[in-house]
Design a protein around this nucleic acid. Structure first.
Lengths: 117, 117
DNA sequence: GAGCGACATCGACTGCCGTCAATGTATGGG
DNA sequence: CCCATACATTGACGGCAGTCGATGTCGCTC
């Protein structure tokens, strides 16, 4: 059921819209936990490499088989990391035949970057 | 000796200068680990609250005693988190009498944000 | 200088996270 | 229809990270 669950703890990050500068105002516990959850998804060497590899791919997307070797990790591990990234909304998955193609969501990365500065 | 160790694994993040867009090009393992180390320092609810609290303080700095209560954590735990942030270069410490004042380093946060987008 | 107050460090416990081998599921080809 | 391929899930293991109480250290005050 992990496939199409729209109510995930991914956090909105944008409260009342406007120019939220993130850490400008004191964060309450709940908001901080949401943000931390999202940052944890990126705070891993393997997942950072995955994001960079996918982004650097020809069409901006890549399948698992192309990612396993350059990372030097087993296929289940790569799948696991991609799932974490997907649940954080940082990548999207698209089944195409027997393959699963992953593409990064630049807007999501932008949100993350915007909150930090 | 932890006070003045200049050779810590904080990572430079800026390789050959220029406009490094971070995840644009494939990251090698070592670079990814450095970046992840830095992101891990921020990927924690308590530390995010600390950063926001310090930044929202009057003079842009705060002592431990002012941070313990709003976080609802023990003093040793707060000290621990501040040490992690300091080792990542995200905050600086200044002893003033019996108190220790912490201030955020906006440039460091900016670097982090720049790498993500 | 003796005692107090602010912070740092230590040691221990607990839970979470990254990793893999083994297994399950589905798609496509012969 | 059966097998090979691509990917996901499960279960288990090891290590790390967050938390606290207890203790250590430094500066201030009387």
């Amino acid at each position: 059921m992990t496939e199409a669950g729209p109510q995930r703890p991914v956090a909105t990050l944008e409260g009342p819209a406007c120019c939220r500068s993130g850490l400008a105002a004191p964060l309450d516990r709940s908001t901080a936990e949401d943000l931390a959850r999202l940052l944890k998804a990126v705070a891993d060497p393997a997942r950072l490499q995955l994001l960079s590899l996918i982004r650097a791919s020809a069409a901006g997307e890549a399948c698992v088989c192309d990612l396993t070797e350059p990372l030097g990790l087993s296929q289940p591990t790569v799948s696991h990391h991609l799932k974490v990234l997907a649940e954080a909304g940082l990548v999207v998955r698209e089944r195409r035949g027997a393959w699963a193609w992953y593409a990064v969501v630049p807007e999501r990365l932008g949100e993350l970057a915007a909150v930090l500065r």
